[in-house]
Design a protein around this nucleic acid. Structure first.
Length: 1146
RNA sequence: GCACCCGUAGCUCAGUUGGUUAGAGCGCAUGCUUGACAUGCAUGAGGUCGCAAGUUCGAGUCUUGCCGGGUGCACCA
């Protein structure tokens, strides 16, 4: 067996077998082609699409491992298993990373390069990172159907997005509204709630007063005091608010105050929710455009007598605009303006005091600058129920989980999901970005005065279509061959119109109009739409001004915003399967198809692997087969993801699936743990602790990474993964440390040299090896910088993965051993296939087959509940502690064709060897299959090696009594071999119990040998005192005592007595004596036995106490009481033996 | 403030519906290398299961409170 190396070489297996699987189409999932045709059940997993922002980290590796495991397991079980790959354009994150890079490297902002050029740059970024991501996934062994890879901005997904938006628009589910967003004044965009972080800063808390004025605007002499942390917002104040029952102010309610800095007269209103009698002065200024609470107050007051205004005082860049009604501050940054306003208030005598205070302030994660609450126009999806009481989008998704159509594993995450959905908050779907699905809406103005409208539709704004104008538009469209099904027009009360495009043709037609208008040519335009006119009224609408300036030049323009990333990813489960096209299958990826171009020999006999290429066949079989449908027995599906996107993504997929498909998108949702670093923090690029799985795979192998990861993918808690840096010169481990920077804490090597972060243009920081013999420097892998080319890099590694590496090596060597013994050698003939009957089995064969059956069923059970950790541990223990440590050791004598017991002395030694070989191969065969989902590369490698000399092998046989193993042909590849199903009848609890006793005895003998330092080569004698039954068992396996503990069983029986000068052990139902005349230290032996006796006495006392307790005896179940009684009896026997020994010794 | 998770051996974690002596890997100690594997084998040491009370015949497991760590959601004049 010289061709099997002593150590498993993961890289060799990975290089060989991944392309093999791909080329043979083993990852491909094919749809059923005709209705009603009986076929395999399907199994679908939709990947939680990684962002093209950057490379994958360990969290992705965990996520991918779980999905691949389930996919490979189901595939072997006979499912047509689809794992759908793809990536997400990740709107803001990707745009931000490209913008930042562009600024750092070229000093350019997006406004310098323009929309089209920026988007092109992002596409280039996307291509680079998608390739990297796919490469990482394949390195890990991901068995996705790569031909079906999708990207959320590709044509198939874009069509689904447009279709859905159009449908929702027509259904009245999409509306335009105002919303306070987190405005990043640096990037000049809104950022989502999850893209801001809070940081406490040292701030101030100022108290001012406003003079109360009478109806003529003359001061009454009264003043109202209030406090604020943002004095500049005074410019946007539209009210002062007090609590309605606050006696200090009740007489002022309804009166007015004058804002000293701009002279604006504003009312004093009462609002019990906004004002708090206990806090501050009890009075609060109201700035609806720049504070969420104030905005909520503004909405509450709408339509009431005390209705207040709303004034946006900020430009997009954070400077004060004209609406502040004081030209002194126009164009000044809001922070500068703050100081000026404080000074002015002081001068005017309205300043009361200031105190220092820690203020939690929201910062933009992208620019690390404070965000401003900022009122803007946004698009929303209505989540609430319909007016007639029918459940709306949110409710439909709640129902699906509550009635069990969608089930969470672990179930506690159900609460996260339903709690969030039951708020039914409308979903803001617009983003002020350039990278994403452009909102397919064109704004137009029909008004005659040339005003431009950024239209604002809420339900009450919609008006019945004016037939005349509508027909003009219809004419325009129909002249282009566009039917009225493809667009939807909504007119707004005398304010303009919105056209929603439902097809690319409409989009093109509308884009043509827009372009022509922009160029001033009116060759093609909608009647009634006039040339753009710059309107002065816009000047107080900074965001709109900005839009006009940068994005659109006319009265007729496409909405500049793009959709929230989650809008497209919510469609993922059906969009990727080709929805809304029901008449053909989705197209396959040409590059990926080329990878598996069938070799000439494969072409003979048909086109089986090409089944889902668009063909003459009509109908979308892919969608029909792989999207959940009735009857549910024919298809299964699971979503495997991390908990932080349960609301953002999982909930939205369910509601979108129900909306578009009228069926849930998946039946199970498995939520796996998160991976934290050794300091307990989540891994992320900005912290510098994100480990590239490929680095780890290079070091330990993909199987090792997968095995280790699955061993900690349990259901209870997150996983700490301590990492260190490996010195590239000497391989020593360098510990990481935390380094606090201005805004974040980052992870860097503890032996960091040089400043961090790097000042512009300075050398990159390095680490110094802590190994005294090395002391060399290297750069280190950090997502915060790219290392200089050609410089040695200390990669991030984690010793935790030795767990998996060692396991793979152990398994490799077990297989190596098996193969050596399956070949012809001086020990006997090579493997011959053939049946094995029950009567040919030895004790250890029956035991290992019993264990195999038990373990297989346990693994199935664990995997069906997504308990990867338990499944992994079970297989590891079985492989290492049972198969290797006991079974292989026990059959070694048989494989050497040495007669094993006196009674088998006459047996044909070769037959003994043959049976051992067959059972060995059968167990190994099953084990390779069982481990395939976990460690596919090593398994395929071993499978193919075994196939070379044992294409026929004896495998578990279920249908014939007495026949245990029967000849069968092995599958072409392990990845497509059948999942093991050993008969349950093999499980034999009594046998397993008996075997445990044997193991205990052997361990006890080994213990004695270790204590007395007996040389490994020396044989000892063993005498066992036991009941005739147990003694008989001992006799029957006597050769194993010799084999495994170098002990010759001299005697076994009830009459055996302890020889003088023997070391002893007591097991409850048997005592063992090992004569060690001369070797034994009587005093030490006595101490050892007394200690043992003490332990047993305590146990006896405990059990006796229980049995004396009448309540225990009467209320505990009978079997528990019997169990206690039984163990008490055993302990008493054991104690009696030990006491005899003690008496002998003393 | 509300919700969820976690606290078990030096470290990282298991521990099913409460039930006989609480387990694993790493690390540690001792002893083993010509026959699968030193990425290995054997043996061993190491835990009043965060604290307190309660329920129960019986609690690592259930309940309540407290302490400590984490996460999510609200809120922050």
């Amino acid at each position: 067996m010289s061709d099997i190396p002593k150590q498993y070489d993961p890289q060799a297996a990975q290089t060989q077998w991944f392309p093999y699987w791909e080329q043979h189409g083993h990852f491909n999932a094919e749809p059923q082609t005709a209705e009603g045709q009986p076929g395999k059940p399907s199994h679908t997993i939709m990947i939680p699409l990684p962002n093209v922002t950057g490379a994958l980290h360990m969290g992705h590796a965990l996520n991918g491992t779980c999905q691949d495991l389930i996919t490979r397991w189901r595939r072997m079980q006979g499912y047509e298993a689809l794992w759908m790959p793809g990536t997400d354009h990740a709107g803001i994150a990707t745009q931000a990373v490209v913008e930042r890079r562009m600024f750092e490297e070229e000093g350019l902002t997006r406004h310098d390069v323009g929309r089209e050029a920026l988007v092109n740059r992002i596409w280039r970024w996307k291509h680079i990172y998608e390739k990297r991501i796919v490469g990482q996934q394949k390195t890990l062994g991901a068995s996705c159907d790569w031909r079906r890879i999708r990207f959320t901005l590709d044509d198939v997904c874009a069509k689904a997005v447009r279709h859905t938006f159009f449908k929702m628009f027509k259904d009245g589910l999409i509306f335009r509204g105002k919303r306070l967003v987190n405005w990043d004044v640096h990037l000049m965009t809104a950022v989502a709630d999850d893209e801001v972080y809070e940081e406490e800063i040292d701030g101030h808390f100022w108290t001012f007063n406003y003079p109360v004025v009478d109806s003529e605007g003359e001061p009454t002499g009264q003043r109202i005091r209030f406090a604020t942390t943002r004095p500049e917002t005074m410019l946007g104040d539209t009210a002062v608010c007090v609590h309605p029952t606050d006696e200090r102010y009740t007489d002022l309610i309804g009166k007015s105050v004058r804002v000293p800095v701009n002279g604006r007269i504003i009312p004093i209103i009462a609002d019990p929710l906004l004002a708090d009698k206990e806090k501050g002065t009890g009075a609060v200024k109201v700035t609806p455009a720049h504070d969420p609470n104030d905005y909520a107050c503004y909405q509450r007051q709408l339509g009431k007598e005390s209705e207040i205004g709303i004034i946006n005082i900020l430009n997009v860049d954070g400077t004060i605009n004209e609406s502040g009604d004081n030209e002194k501050f126009v164009g000044i940054d809001r922070l500068k303006a703050r100081d000026l306003i404080i000074a002015e208030m002081q001068t005017l005598g309205h300043f009361e005091g200031v105190e220092d205070r820690k203020i939690p302030l929201k910062h933009s994660d992208r620019s690390k600058t404070p965000v401003e609450p900022y009122l803007s126009d946004q698009w929303f999806v209505k989540m609430g129920d319909h007016e007639d009481g029918r459940p709306g989008l949110a409710q439909s998704a709640i129902d699906a989980v509550e009635d069990g159509r969608v089930r969470f594993y672990p179930s506690r995450y159900t609460k996260t999901y339903t709690d969030w959905l039951s708020e039914k908050r409308d979903w803001c779907i617009s983003r002020q970005l350039w990278w994403g699905h452009r909102i397919p809406i064109w704004h137009g103005s029909l008004s005659r005065d040339g005003r431009v409208f950024i239209t604002d539709i809420s339900d009450e704004d919609r008006v019945v279509v004016e037939a005349e104008t509508h027909s003009q538009l219809s004419e325009y469209f129909s002249a282009k061959g566009i039917s009225h099904e493809e667009y939807s027009i909504v007119f707004l009360k005398e304010r303009g119109m919105l056209i929603c495009a439902g097809s690319t043709r409409v989009e093109e037609a509308l884009a043509t109009i827009e372009r022509n208008l922009e160029q001033g040519g009116m060759k093609e335009s909608i009647p009634g739409v006039t040339n753009p006119t710059r309107n002065e009224g816009l000047m107080d609408e900074p965001e709109q001004l900005w839009k006009i300036r940068h994005l659109c030049k006319g009265l007729f323009y496409q909405d500049p915003d793009v959709l929230d990333t989650w809008f497209s990813s919510a469609l993922w489960p059906h969009a990727t399967l080709g929805w809304p096209d029901l008449d053909h299958n989705p197209p396959l990826n040409a590059d990926e198809l080329a990878r598996q171009a069938p070799k000439p020999t494969d072409c003979v006999g048909g086109t089986a692997t090409q089944g889902s290429v668009p063909s003459t066949h009509m109908g979308n079989d892919v969608l029909r087969t792989f999207y959940p449908h009735e009857p549910i027995e024919t298809n299964h599906s699971v979503l495997i993801t991390s908990r932080d996107i349960i609301t953002l993504w999982v909930a939205r997929m369910v509601l979108m699936g129900l909306y578009n498909m009228e069926e849930i998108p998946f039946r199970h949702v498995h939520v796996h743990p998160k991976i934290l670093d050794g300091f307990g923090q989540t891994m992320s690029k900005s912290k510098g602790n994100g480990v590239d799985p490929v680095d780890l795979i290079d070091k330990y192998g993909a199987d090792a990474i997968r095995f280790t990861i699955s061993s900690f993918a349990g259901e209870t808690q997150d996983v700490k993964l301590p990492i260190s840096y490996a010195c590239p010169h000497c391989d020593a481990m360098i510990e990481p440390k935390l380094l606090k920077l201005d805004t974040v804490t980052v992870v860097v090597p503890s032996t960091l040299k040089g400043s961090f972060p790097v000042p512009q243009g300075s050398p990159k920081p390095t680490l110094v090896c802590s190994n005294k013999a090395c002391k060399k420097e290297s750069q280190f892998s950090t997502p915060l910088y790219d290392a200089d080319p050609g410089v040695p890099i200390a990669k991030m590694v984690s010793e935790r993965f030795e767990y998996g590496r060692n396991f793979c090596n152990k398994f490799w060597n077990a297989a190596r051993f098996a193969m050596m013994n399956l070949m012809e050698s001086e020990n006997g003939p090579g493997y011959t296939p053939g049946d094995v009957t029950a009567d040919q089995l030895h004790l250890e064969d029956r035991w290992i087959l019993s264990r195999l059956s038990t373990v297989t069923h346990q693994v199935d059970e664990y995997l069906s509940r997504y308990q990867f950790d338990a499944a992994t541990r079970t297989l590891r223990e079985f492989t290492w502690n049972e198969f290797c440590d006991w079974y292989l050791e026990m059959i070694k004598p048989r494989l050497r064709a040495v007669p094993t017991t006196p009674s088998s002395a006459s047996d044909d030694a070769n037959e003994t060897r043959a049976v051992a070989q067959r059972v060995l191969l059968a167990v190994l065969d099953s084990l390779i299959r069982l481990l395939q989902p976990f460690t596919p590369f090593i398994c395929e490698d071993l499978w193919q090696r075994l196939k070379e000399f044992a294409p026929l092998r004896a495998l578990p046989c279920c249908d014939e009594p007495g026949v245990i193993l029967r000849e069968a042909t092995s599958a072409e590849a392990c990845i497509v071999a059948a999942w093991p199903a050993p008969p349950k009848s093999w499980q034999d609890a009594a046998l397993e119990k008996r075997f445990e006793r044997l193991q205990e005895t052997i361990a006890a003998v080994r213990n004695v040998r270790a204590i007395y330092g007996i040389k490994p080569g020396d044989t000892v004698k063993l005498l066992m005192r036991a009941t005739p039954e147990v003694a008989g068992e001992m006799q029957s396996v006597a050769s194993q005592f010799d084999n495994l503990a170098k002990a010759v069983l001299e005697a076994a029986g009830a009459e055996v007595e302890r020889p003088a000068g023997a070391a002893s052990f007591s097991l409850g139902d048997a005592d063992g004596y090992i004569p060690l005349e001369g070797l034994i230290d009587k005093a030490a032996e006595l101490t050892r036995q007394q200690k043992e006796a003490e332990k047993v006495r305590k146990l006896i006392a405990g059990n006796e106490g229980k049995l004396k307790n009448e309540k225990f005896v009467s209320s505990a179940p009978a079997d528990v009481v019997a169990g206690v009684q039984e163990s008490l009896d055993n302990y008493r026997k054991q104690l009696a033996s030990i006491e005899t020994i003690i008496a002998d010794l003393s």
